[in-house]
Every structure is written in C-alpha cells, then in structure tokens.
Design a protein around this nucleic acid. Sequence first.
DNA 1: GCCCACTTGACAATCTGATTGTCATTTCTA
DNA 2: TAGAAATGACAATCAGATTGTCAAGTGGGC
Lengths: 166, 166
Amino acid sequence: MTVTAMAPTEPARELENLTLSVRACFRELGAVANTLHQGLSVTAAMRAVMEHLADHGPQTVPDIAGAKRVSRQNIQVRVDRLSERELVELRPNPAHRRSALVALTEHGRRTFAAMQGSEHKLFAELASGLPKASIRTARKVLSQLTHDLQTWHSDLTSQTEGKEHD
Amino acid sequence: MTVTAMAPTEPARELENLTLSVRACFRELGAVANTLHQGLSVTAAMRAVMEHLADHGPQTVPDIAGAKRVSRQNIQVRVDRLSERELVELRPNPAHRRSALVALTEHGRRTFAAMQGSEHKLFAELASGLPKASIRTARKVLSQLTHDLQTWHSDLTSQTEGKEHD
DNA sequence: GCCCACTTGACAATCTGATTGTCATTTCTA
DNA sequence: TAGAAATGACAATCAGATTGTCAAGTGGGC
C-alpha cells in the first residue's frame, strides 16, 4: 500500500495537467452554454435529446436511451420536459402501439437551430484565436485518451462484474 | 431569426468537434475515477476538497468555497460527508471561534495519497500511448479556450447583471 | 393460435451535486 | 460600541441520474 505519495513520472504529470484542463474547460463550456441559451429553458440534457432527434429523426424513448447509454427513465424525464415546452411531440408509432415516436416539433426545430446558430457564432469567434492545427491535435489527443479510458474501463468492469442496463 | 441552420464556418466546426471531445473525455474521466476509487466511498466532489486541503493546508469552509467559487453550503455538505468518514477533522481555529479549520486526518492523507497513487499509475499507463508534445499542445489549447470562454462569459454577465455570491 | 418472456410506460424512491433563502450568532470595522 | 458582514445550521428546491416495481403491450417459439 502506497502510504507516502510517490512522485509521478513526468509524462503522467503532463497527462494529469491535461485532465485538469479538460475538467476546467468542461465546466466553462457548461456555464457558457447556460448563459448563451438563458431564457430558452432548455438544459444541456434536454438539448442532447433535441440534437439526437435532429440527427437521427423520430425515435422511441428506449431507442434514445440505448443510443446514449443512459437509463430509459432518464430519457423519459427529459422527453417529458421537452414535451411540456412543446419542443417535441409524441407521434403514433406504426411499429409499436405503446411506444410512441418522439419527434421535434416545428418550434423545437427552430429553437434547436437558433441554439446551434449562436453556438456556431461563438465558436467562430473563439476559433479565430487558435491555430487550426493545434485544435485538430487537441481533438485527436482527447479522442485517443477517451478511447483508451474506455478500453481500460471496460477491461476492468468486464472482469469483475457483468453489469447490464435495465 | 435564423430558421434554417446556417452552415458553420470550417474553424468553428473544428472547435465544435473539440468541445464534443472535451465532453466525452470528461464523462469518461468521471466514470474511470469512479471505478478506480470504488469502495473508497469518496466521490469526485469530496476528492476535490481533499485535494484542496492537501495543497493548501487546513482552511475554513468559506475559504474553500471562495477558492472553488461554489456556495459555502455546498462545501459544507462535502465536508460533512468527509467528516462522517473521518477523512477530515474540524480543528479549533485560533483566528475565529465559530469557523473551524477543516484539516485532513491521517486517514484522509493516506486515502488521498492512495487515490493519487492509482491515478498516477493509470496516467503513466495512458501517457505511454500519446506523444508528449501533443499532450502539451492539447493542454495549451484547452487552457486558452477555457480562458477565452471565461472572458466571453464575464464580459456578457457583467454588462447585464451584477451577480454576486451568497 | 397461444403462452411466456421481453419490452415499455408510468411511478416511486433514492442519491449526488449544487443552489437559494433564512435565522441566530459571531466577528469585524467604521 | 453599534451596525454591517460573515458564519453555521437548516430547509427547500432543482437537475441529473439510477434502481426498482407493476401493469400492460408485443412478439417469438411451439
């Protein structure tokens, strides 16, 4: 057992700094998104469902949950809230009487487009101060890191327990 | 009003991809941290307080809250939970009778060192697959981006409202 | 065609994280 | 020293996410 903290290797420290930056950046992105979309009453979680519907067309709640790998109950709540605000509507599902298709309403489409618009405007503004090549490098590093983390994670969990969703 | 979504400029799209990677990486880091420290009953929020105490020595709850820019009530809850598990202790504060100093216990120090140890081990493992220069570039980009986001954010909020903490 | 297993929606309970608000007490400063 | 600010202790609320249960719909194997 490591009682006294060992000095980390130098590359490990670099990577640790990177993860700190990731956390800080994530927080700031969240805060900015809130400010950017304030008054729209659309949270990040709700926005994610809208994005999914915009990208993949109408889907059932379990479909969305499966794709996003969260519980269907979680998605159900998000859909309920979107539905309250008439950003999505429930359409009869030809393939399933109980499980309705969740689809963006016209209002939902317009709201999502507006959100994307202001996001892109901000991104364009911010991108001007950063070299394109660096941005690409950063994205590649993060993608690789995320992938490695996923691998590590699934390796570890699969050998200990066979966790399953719902 | 932008009804049809305008095609984003190319650098903006790069940056948007980067933010997607940031989010994905953040989620994965959280999941991995949970797995890594499972059984220790220390959540990320609690760990953050422990780290702060390890770095800055004993502090009062409002001090920690101020440094982390979250509400003191939030920190109070984290400290309560850490205190339940005897990872921190409340010491009399010479400079303030009401506001006790929160300090890591020996158990807390050892637990935190163990957490850091397994984190560093994992980081070292993951770092081997990534070029050092790329990691540094990624960190710089994220730092810059975070800074720019903060600037944008505070510019916008300061001109609309004078939000203040507690 | 029927039965059983799986799926689904609708609730309910719980947890973490974080915020705001209130109130009495303590600390500090003008 | 009096009043303003800070502090702890609660309470209420919210978003996000999970697990569990139950009744009802769906679909496959026989």
